[in-house]
Design a protein around this nucleic acid. Structure first.
Length: 441
RNA sequence: CGGAGCGUGGCGCAGUCUGGUAGCGCAUCCGGCUGGGGGCCGGAAGGUCGCAGGUUCAAAUCCUGCCGCUCCGACCA
């Protein structure tokens, strides 16, 4: 992609309304534009990141055997009355009427709808266990939206739902998602820690919040260093084998990991040796629940057992704040100059900078490099504009692409280009071919 | 929902107290110079001063009402 043909309205100055670093950087990097309080348009650069995150979440859900579907953003009030939540949810739920006067709502979550879908399609114990998920926009009319996309009113969320014959089977589904979450966040380069959590308005009796580490995060967490060093991606785990995932879940849940509101200093010191105690800040990006038959009973989502009895299914739900993660990732990965994307979610892998757009040799070298990088399957943002070098460096640092490939007339005469690693600041002068080999390899 | 504050060109702000025909920096456009960390010179364009009403010879400025946005708190992915 040529920068001259890419809609990237970056800002040199800080917008006044943005207080926290991720919000500020997202606005400055031209990723989002606010439409109303807590409601954002995703500009091309922001959208690219959102899609990358979404894809990682999707791949890991698929890996866990969940089936993707897509439920609507708008729901009718009927099911919500059946579950009793139409009254409970309060003003956070955006309600309105269609032209026929029917009560509609913009879905803040989907337990009712998915339960109804399952009820209609599953009748027998043979239809469980089942796990369904979708990635869809939701709306919660927060009293006070803030922190940009981290606490917006409209947000993109992955929510998965599990349906099982009994509690033990439901717990297996829960463990599967638990490990899937560890994998999902690890793939984004994040350190995520599951914390025992209050269940909140969704209800139920087992729940973990997944908190990612970020120095600017709003939550204080206390935990054991070993959890942060745990390598889940390095293991070859069969998620469908409970014997393999159970020890992992037991290990994690056996360690001290609490947020400040649940923290007990004496208990912390008792459980964690002094040199392993970690007190850091974090952001909640995922939440998993087991809630049994809370929805299946009132909505009559039952299956028949082998004996011919009809029993309500045991359910769990598993959420990931996809759009929130964009902000969360920036909170975790930024420096003075701007964003520092982990490679797995970066909007482009390489920023190709032509320092002298008017120079024929530079132009040819850059066109050639862009073509070859793209042939190698790498995404490239090629700055082919007439801006001054300083402006180009500053902008490229701001948008945080992992690699900068810098081509200037002086280097070219010497047969070299410069490869800069955004995260470490490391620079290498090497031949264009060597740079290609390093990036493509 | 309680408390605080802010709405003036795309962005950041001054001007409001003390009414007199709207200004600065950045960005944009044109020309030239420059060319490894948001460069320089010259020229240009761009604003119903959030909206409505009122006071006044005259309102960005004073008064009333409304709308929007932000921050702190309570609440949440």
């Amino acid at each position: 992609m040529r920068l001259s043909r890419y809609f990237l309205p970056t800002l040199k100055e800080n917008p006044a309304e943005a207080e926290i670093v991720s919000h500020r950087l997202m606005l400055r990097a031209g990723m989002i534009r606010q439409g109303a309080a807590g409601i954002y348009s995703w500009l091309p650069l922001g959208n690219a990141v959102l899609r990358n995150i979404e894809q990682i979440v999707r791949e890991e859900q698929d890996r866990a055997g969940a089936n993707e579907l897509l439920m609507p953003t708008i729901q009718s009030s009927d099911l919500w009355r059946q579950s009793g939540r139409y009254e409970d949810y309060g003003k956070e739920m955006l309600r309105f009427k269609d032209r026929h006067g029917r009560e509609m709502l913009y879905g803040p979550t989907n337990e009712e709808l998915i339960t109804e879908i399952f009820r209609a399609g599953a009748k027998s114990y043979r239809d469980v266990p089942a796990m369904l998920y979708h990635i869809q926009w939701k709306f919660r009319d927060e009293v006070r939206p803030r922190f940009g996309v981290m606490r917006g009113r409209e947000f993109l969320m992955k929510d998965a739902y599990s349906f099982d014959l009994d509690q033990e089977s439901a717990f297996r589904a829960y463990r599967k998602q638990f490990v899937t979450y560890l994998r999902t966040f690890a793939r984004m380069g994040l350190k995520a820690v599951p914390m025992e959590a209050e269940t909140g308005p969704i209800g139920g009796n087992m729940s973990h919040e997944f908190v990612i580490l970020a120095d600017t995060g709003e939550t204080e967490i206390f935990t054991h260093q070993d959890l942060l060093d745990y390598d889940v991606l390095g293991q070859d785990i069969d998620l469908h084998d409970d014997a393999q995932i159970r020890p992992i879940v037991d290990y994690w849940t056996g360690q001290y990991a609490r947020t400040d509101d649940m923290h007990d200093q004496a208990e912390f010191e008792r459980q964690v040796p002094a040199d392993k105690r970690v007190q850091r800040r974090g952001i909640e990006v995922g939440h998993i629940f087991y809630f049994g038959t809370k929805y299946s009973e009132p909505l009559e989502a039952t299956v028949s057992t082998k004996d011919g009895d009809s029993v309500p299914v045991h359910m769990g739900s598993y959420g990931v704040g996809v759009s929130r993660l964009v902000g969360g990732l920036i909170e975790a990965f930024h420096d003075e100059a701007g964003i520092v994307w982990p490679e797995s979610v970066a909007p482009f892998k390489v920023g190709l900078i032509n320092l002298r757009a008017g120079d024929e040799a530079c132009r040819q070298a850059c066109d050639d490099l862009q073509a070859k990088l793209e042939q190698a399957g790498l995404t490239v943002l090629h700055d082919d504009t007439e801006d001054s070098p300083g402006a180009k460096f500053a902008q490229m640092d701001l948008i945080g692409l992992p690699w900068q490939l810098i081509v200037g007339p002086k280097g070219l005469k010497a047969g070299t280009v410069e490869l800069k690693h955004r995260a470490t600041g490391e620079r290498d002068e090497l031949s264009p071919d060597a740079a290609l080999a390093k990036l493509a390899g």
